[in-house]
């Protein structure tokens, strides 16, 4: 890292900070129940729900903090918060 004049930072550089380590619980999709409504992608504060080619979604566990908003909001009850085993 070098000091930049005036402390200017490049865009999107927090990606180096993998907040996935914060988790106590991890969300897991049940694709049988999922209706592909996309609400989970919208409500994730950490931009860690990503759309897949087949219309379902997947988690970016590098950044997911396990807040559980997706599971709480899912209208199809298709997300389960599972204790993080490590």
């Amino acid at each position: 890292m070098k000091i930049t004049t005036g402390g200017v930072c490049k865009a999107g550089t927090t990606l180096v900070n993998k907040t996935g380590g914060w988790r106590s619980f991890r969300p897991v999709f049940n694709y049988e129940k999922c209706k592909k409504c996309g609400l989970c992608e919208i409500v994730c504060p950490d931009m860690s729900v990503l759309p897949k080619e087949d219309g379902f979604f997947k988690y970016n566990y590098d950044y997911c903090k396990g807040c559980g908003i997706c599971a709480n909001e899912c209208p199809a009850d298709a997300i389960e918060m599972v204790l993080e085993e490590k």
């Binding site: 890292m1 000091i3 004049t5 005036g6 402390g7 200017v8 930072c9 490049k10 865009a11």
Partner: peptide, 25 residues
């Protein structure tokens, strides 16, 4: 100037500097 606020080349001005960098600024 070298850096400006410009959507064509987005940069962030005014980040916070923790004790590990403030002195160098």
């Amino acid at each position: 100037p070298e850096y400006v606020l410009d959507p064509k080349n987005p940069m962030s001005f005014g980040a916070f500097a923790a004790p590990d960098t403030y002195e160098e600024f």
